[in-house]
Each structure stands twice: as structure tokens, then as C-alpha cells.
Amino acid sequence: MLDRARHMRKEPTEAEAKLWSCLRAGRLNGFKFRRQVTIGTYIADFVCPSAKLIVEIDGSQHAEQTIYDAQRTAFLVGEGYRVIRFWNDEVLGSCDDVIEAILHHLTVASPLPGALRLSLSPAGRGFVGGPT
């Protein structure tokens, strides 16, 4: 598992590399993130340990693996994390909006229920799906 996480850090997707350039080294209001972190049998894309927040960047394959993602999210939430998700194209096309949403969730006092897919499209801005 650790070897796979190392490999994923060395070869990030375009969206992961773009977001990492904004999150690394405490660049987001001093919040420190780690990338490709193993938690149990899963690898989380970005983790802010102090806020117990996981940021997942999903490609198109995630549209077809909803059951796996729900199980994965349930495990991560059970470990005390909040999970937010963005699509690759949202990071690539609206990175400033993604950063703003992440910052909002870093400063929210109450924990989020489960994983939320954030949609930044003008037609569907806000939370879409996710358990309540």
C-alpha cells in the first residue's frame, strides 16, 4: 500500500498536481496538507490532519464505482474524517472556486455528515448528493 501511495505521489494526475500546488507547504491559510495518504486499506488524495478533512479529486471512473466510493467514504468517516469531493474538470477549470470551497470546509466548526460532492457548475452550484 505504501509503495502504491509513493508511486501516486510521483505521478499525479493533472488535476492533483494543480491542486497540490495550492495546498502544499501551508499555502492555504497555514493549513498543512499531505497527499496520497494511506488510511486503513485506502489512499486519500489530500488530507489536512489538523482539520480531519480529506479532499478527493475524482476522474470519470468514479461515476461508475459509486458503491465502492460509498464504502470507502463510510470507512473514512468512521475514522473521524470529513470528506469532500471534486471532479477533475472542476479543479482544472475552476481551481479558485475549489480552493474557496476547501477553505470554507477547513474553517467550518461542525463536522460534515459523510462525503459531499461539490458541484461548482453555474447550474448546480452547491452540494450534490452525499449521505445526510
Rank of each mutant, 00 (worst) to 15 (best):
S94N: 11
L106K: 01
Q65A: 03
V91K: 08
H62M: 04
K32N: 11
I84E: 13
F86N: 04
C95F: 00
Y81V: 00
I57E: 03
L23M: 12
P122E: 10
T41E: 00
S119R: 08
D97H: 03
D96T: 09
N88Y: 05
D69H: 04
H105R: 00
N88H: 11
R117Y: 06
L92T: 14
T38D: 00
V108H: 08
V77E: 13
G126A: 14
V108Q: 14
L92H: 12
Q71A: 09
L120H: 08
L112A: 07
K52I: 08
G30M: 11
E64A: 08
T132N: 12
L92G: 09
L112D: 09
G59V: 07
L118R: 12
E79Q: 15
T41R: 14
Q65K: 08
R82A: 15
V128M: 08
V83A: 00
A115E: 13
G80K: 07
V47R: 06
K32E: 05
E56Q: 05
V128C: 04
G124K: 14
T66K: 14
N88M: 09
R24H: 13
Y42R: 02
L92N: 15
D96N: 14
A63L: 10
Q71W: 03
G126Y: 13
L103T: 15
A101F: 02
D97K: 14
G130M: 11
Y42M: 07
P49W: 02
G129F: 12
L28W: 03
A51F: 05
C48T: 07
C48R: 09
N88K: 09
G130Q: 09
P113V: 01
Q36F: 02
G129A: 11
C95L: 12
G124Y: 13
Q61T: 13
P111E: 00
V37Y: 01
A51Y: 02
E79Y: 11
A109E: 03
